[in-house]
Design a protein around this nucleic acid. Structure first.
Length: 796
RNA sequence: GCCGAAGUGGCGGAACUGGCAGACGCGCCGGACUCAAAAUCCGGUGGGGGAAACCUCGUGUGGGUUCGAGUCCCACCUUCGGCACCA
């Protein structure tokens, strides 16, 4: 038998699979039901910023192991691949290096695709697409219009990071220490009209329907916190001078009698009005300007409270007290109503502020948790008292129970070039008008310069911008903002189901067959934003009758990060190791094995190449041992000898690890053990069976060498063979090693037959000379017998 | 500060329901093969004591529950991740 030549074998089998279209799966016949048979295995699609790194190798190898495992367990598996190809990095690369973002991503995609093929991942390439293809983003636009026309999308003013020097909006990651990372200018806050999806309308659904999900608890917890539901009350404070009511949200209505002042966020729309009539209006405006410019991090870290009094007063509805209205940046516009009642006695932050500005402090809950100084509510326990106060306010129309969320609506417009155009037209007469379906896609126009200059880059495309209003025919202007790439990735899993449909984003019946995704795999860094948005999108589309399911990802496996030098591999940090050199040196199979062998896949792992030779060594050893087995092992039934039992035990372990425990490193160790044992007895009666088993079990990890060895063992097409099953009878042993403890410490161990009674086990334990020595004539107070495991003798 | 995850040999890690701590691999040490080296193969490898049989200590720290704790409970320390003046 020849030497193990990874390169040669891998390229050979990759060609065989491609020719056989081995991993393409057809769509169902109309009317087919998928629940029992289908399995949709998906990993988060890559962003084509450069080449693959070991983080990608981890995710896609994980997905690959699941794909093979499910396929061979009788499921019809769809496992597609695509590229999240719109977005900022490509646009910035185009600005920095010249060229078109499209050329850049398409070049990267080509490279990534060839790397993926060289890794031998079992992908259904017939479903491949990129989100920047007009054939794809046409339907992104179409879906947006469905949501827009149903009232899910709207426009409102919201602050953005603005660089006054570059005249452009900056993403959070482009702001370093409050300065533009390109030119160093101090970043300002600017209010811009932008597009939003009403994600908050789905807050409760997003929370409640989590019970349908088989996700890691830590990810569910992150989402729960992100949504941040909290129950409390909304209470109206009267501002007499302005003749209006200001609502506040509070979780501590029980402390209302202790509210001694009132605070508005600097961004609160009322502040402008107050400044106009306030004696210290100038000071107020200056404070608001500075607070807006203050980097969020600094504002958040600021232990020192700052603020300005407005000179206006609000009336506390419980006791008619007139309390001063302040403006302070410790109150956030994004949370609650942007206004709070301040209770210095019972809120740490209010307390610090009151001390700084010498504001009154009134204690209304005593050490026993009873209300005091609270009129007719005094003496009640504060929890019940709070409810009573809200109820009393309700009868007077000044308050009601309310629920507040941390979750905000999703701002999805970007003042950028490289994204999906938002298909609406602004008309002087008709307002915002949807582009009709027949005019989709709204193609991204070619422009000269991707740098924004005060206006989004698309505004340069004058010809393109000017367009007749689809409704009245008068001249209108196209939307020049593009969509957030999270919109693209909120439905890509639907498109895979019916990737080349040119009449619709997908056929509803086909999507209903494949969806939801059975196994979703990706970095935990997407546990909140992407996975909340995708869940929101799914629910909204379901409510529009466009799909039949409400949750996109039934099971989720969040893989850890592959770090190098302690931080996550990324092109921008320059700490990237890719698969290419490893494949050349060790082969794809050894690389795939190694990335899953180095540790639990759901935990972060520091990349360290030194062990990869071990997995290569293992494959060589497997190769050699299989060769010896082919030469030496007798034909015929494996029987029930030692190596047969070991093989059955290994099947049971690997199957349980992959199927139930979602553990990907230990199966490799289990197969290594089997191979180690087989190496000692390649001529054993059961050696052929053991070799087959080892090859078959390692196939999801190392499919090329497995296929080659499978053939050498006289079989064909391992990739479509049923997953091996173990014989439970062969897991049973006739004997076991009895552990004998004295006072809980192991003193002896010896092999005994299965089936001895407890008394017999104890008797044997006592016979042991080593145990005798420990007993030393002492009295046994208690004996513990754990069947099939141990005897513990406790001395008095 | 809050929420979550994790702390086990020189290193990555294993030990699933409380029952032999350290599977598997890396590294290292010794041996075989070789003129030699690489590769490969065989053996060893937690600390301390002992010539050895064996004894003893040992899973971040301190307590506790239990016949028995890496695993359960309480308090704490450290690291990583998420969120954060959240009303």
């Amino acid at each position: 038998m020849d030497k193990y030549e990874a390169q040669q074998i891998e390229v050979k089998w990759q060609q065989v699979w491609a020719d056989a279209r081995a991993f393409e799966v057809p769509n169902p016949e109309p009317g087919a039901r998928g629940e029992e048979r289908k399995s949709y295995v998906l990993e988060m699609l890559p962003y084509p910023s450069g080449t693959l790194h070991m983080g990608h190798v981890l995710v896609y190898t994980l997905g690959d192991v699941l794909t093979h495992f499910r396929r061979r367990n009788g499921f019809e598996v769809m496992r597609p691949m695509g590229y999240d190809s719109f977005g900022l990095p490509a646009e910035n690369a185009a600005i920095a290096e010249g060229g078109h973002p499209r050329e850049i991503v398409e070049r990267n995609i080509e490279h990534i695709r060839s790397e993926m093929k060289r890794m031998g991942w079992a992908i259904d390439w017939s479903r491949e697409f990129s989100t920047h293809d007009p054939e794809y983003y046409r339907w992104t636009q179409w879906l947006f219009l469905q949501l827009f026309e149903a009232g899910h999308a709207y426009r409102k003013a919201a602050p953005v990071n603005w660089c006054p020097n570059d005249q452009t909006v900056l993403a959070n990651e482009q702001v370093k220490d409050g300065r533009c990372d390109r030119c160093g200018a101090e970043v300002e806050a600017r209010n811009l009209e932008q597009w939003f999806f009403r994600t908050t309308a789905y807050a409760d659904h997003l929370l409640d329907e989590m019970d349908q999900l088989d996700w890691p608890e830590r990810v569910l917890a992150m989402q729960r916190h992100w949504i941040g539901r909290s129950e409390g009350a909304e209470v109206l404070f009267r501002v007499e001078e302005l003749d209006l009511d200001l609502p506040v949200f509070t979780t501590r209505a029980d402390t209302l009698f202790g509210a001694t002042y009132f605070v508005l966020a600097p961004e609160h729309p009322l502040v402008e009005r107050l400044a106009a009539d306030s004696p210290n209006g100038d000071e107020l405006r200056e404070y608001v300007r500075r607070a807006g410019a203050k980097p969020a991090a600094e504002r958040a870290a600021g232990a020192d409270k700052t603020g300005v009094s407005t000179g206006f007063f609000a009336t506390n509805p419980v006791n008619e007290a007139r309390i001063p209205i302040w403006v302070a940046d410790y109150v956030l516009m994004e949370y609650g109503t942007g206004a709070i009642m301040a209770v210095p006695a019972h809120d740490e932050r209010d307390g610090a502020f009151a001390e700084r500005f010498d504001l009154p402090v009134v204690t209304v809950v005593d050490e026993d948790g009873q209300l005091v100084e609270s009129a007719q509510f005094s003496g009640q326990p504060h929890t019940e008292g709070g409810e009573a106060i809200v109820e009393w306010l309700g009868t007077r129309g000044r308050g009601r129970p309310a629920v507040n969320y941390r979750l905000r609506d999703w701002g999805f417009s970007r003042q950028r070039y490289w994204g999906c155009p938002i298909p609406v037209v602004y008309c002087g007469d008709c307002g915002i008008v949807a582009v009709p379906d027949s005019d989709l896609p709204v193609l991204l126009p070619e422009i000269e310069d991707y740098k924004p200059k005060g206006v989004p880059p698309l505004a340069q495309a004058d010809e393109w911008v000017r367009v007749d209003c689809p409704r009245c025919g008068k001249e209108g202007r196209r939307e020049v903002e593009t969509m957030d790439t999270f919109v693209d990735s909120s439905w890509y899993f639907l498109r895979y189901c019916d990737a080349h449909n040119d009449q619709a984003p997908y056929d509803r019946e086909i999507v209903d067959y494949w969806m939801p995704v059975n196994d979703y795999t990706g970095g935990v860094d997407h546990s909140t934003v992407h996975m909340i948005y995708a869940r929101y999108f799914t629910k909204a589309l379901n409510d529009l009758g466009l799909i039949g399911h409400r949750e996109p990802f039934k099971r989720f496996f969040g893989n850890g990060w592959v770090t190098q030098g302690g931080s996550k591999m990324s092109k921008s940090k320059g700490n990237v190791t890719g698969p290419d050199a490893l494949v050349k040196l060790y082969g794809a199979d050894a690389t795939r094995l190694y990335i899953l062998f180095i540790g639990p896949a759901d935990q972060d792992m520091e990349w360290n190449e030194s062990g990869i030779e071990g997995t290569q060594r293992f494959l060589r050893r497997l190769w050699r041992v299989v060769g010896e087995v082919v030469e030496q092992a007798p034909a015929g039934e494996p029987g029930e000898g030692g190596i047969a039992r070991k093989a059955h035990r290994t099947i049971a372990r690997v199957t349980d690890d992959l199927g139930r425990r979602h553990q990907f490193n230990t199966p490799i160790a289990a197969v290594m053990e089997l191979v180690n044992e087989l190496a000692k007895a390649p001529g054993d009666q059961a050696a052929r069976f053991a070799a087959k088993t080892a090859v078959s079990l390692i196939q999801p990890y190392a499919p090329h060498v497995a296929e080659e060895l499978w053939e050498q063992l006289g079989h064909e097409r391992l990739w479509e063979q049923p997953w091996p099953t173990h014989d439970p009878a062969l897991l049973e042993e006739d004997t076991f090693e009895l552990v004998v403890q004295v006072n809980g410490k192991v003193r002896d161990r010896f092999v005994v037959p299965v089936g001895l009674s407890e008394d017999e086990l104890v008797a044997r334990a006592k016979e042991s000379p080593k145990v005798q020595a420990q007993l030393n004539g002492g009295e046994i107070r208690k004996t513990i017998v754990v069947p099939r495991k141990l005897v513990n003798l406790v001395l008095g």
